[in-house]
């Protein structure tokens, strides 16, 4: 944007990095420390024996918790709270889960294809009782491909800000305001990559449709689950989860 000075972009960068650091939920050092701490065969077996309802409820709670951190990230990002409330909600409703999926690559060990879950690293088989192997595998594949980019924490911060601030989301009321913030974030992201000689990753970033598709698959799976267990969803699933996904 010709109207944004380098100082403005630098301020935005610092603000996004700070907001991210304050809301990243799990510290990278802790995740790295536990990287080879995997569930035993017996523990995996006991997860696999859990009922579908229990496993769904657990995962819904974890997703909701992760999303609350993303909401907090958005709130601390300069410019986000200046958007009208309709647009804040549109962006979070469409983008919060996408950000959670990107953040997940920090908690993913691509060397043994496991993800941090309830204190240890878990392979896709652990989630068998959810009854959505295809979705779980797609999410693991996605985390694997993102891991290969070796994102730094600063890169994740700016990239996830851009996942959230997307002026192409339907139902925005002040599209141009979102567009301006998005343009500035793009400048900030590219500026940082240039500074660190990391522009090469730009061509390797996941296409926007990939994240959208994973979120769509998740909502479809929830729909099927809800048809089987409407009372469980109604009575025990976190209200924020239901508000966002059903």
């Amino acid at each position: 944007s010709p109207n944004s000075s380098l100082t403005e972009i630098e301020h935005l960068t610092q603000n996004v990095l700070k907001s991210y650091r304050e809301t990243c939920q799990l510290r990278l050092e802790d995740l790295q420390l536990l990287r080879w701490e995997t569930f035993t065969k017996e523990e995996v077996g006991s997860y696999q024996k859990k009922s579908m309802e229990e496993m769904w409820e657990r995962c819904a709670c974890h997703i909701t918790e992760a999303i609350q951190y993303v909401v907090e990230f958005a709130k601390r990002m300069s410019g986000f709270m200046d958007l009208c409330q309709n647009d804040q909600i549109v962006l979070l409703k469409a983008g919060a889960m996408e950000v959670v999926l990107v953040r997940m690559c920090r908690a993913f060990n691509s060397e043994n294809r496991t993800v941090f879950f309830e204190g240890k690293y878990a392979s896709p088989e652990l989630f068998k009782s959810l009854g959505c192997n295809e979705l779980i595998n797609s999410i693991f594949d996605f985390a694997h491909s993102l891991s290969s980019l070796h994102f730094s924490e600063n890169e994740i911060a700016l990239f996830t800000a851009l996942v959230l601030i997307n002026s192409n989301r339907p139902w925005l009321q002040e599209k141009s305001k979102v567009e301006r913030l998005q343009n500035n974030l793009e400048l900030a992201f590219k500026h940082m990559l240039r500074k660190n000689h990391r522009e090469g990753i730009l061509a390797k970033l996941p296409p926007k449709g990939k994240l959208r598709n994973l979120c769509y698959q998740h909502m479809e799976k929830l729909r099927s689950f809800r048809q089987m267990y409407p009372i469980i969803v109604h009575a025990v699933f976190p209200p924020l989860y239901k508000e966002l996904f059903s």
Binding site: Q68, V71, E72, K75, M81, Q85, Q88, I89, L92, K93, P239, L240, E243, L244
Partner: peptide, 16 residues
């Protein structure tokens, strides 16, 4: 607004 009351509340809560 009613449809997204929890998001509304989270966004308005300045203490979080």
């Amino acid at each position: 607004k009613e449809k997204h009351k929890i998001l509304h509340r989270l966004l308005q809560d300045s203490s979080s």
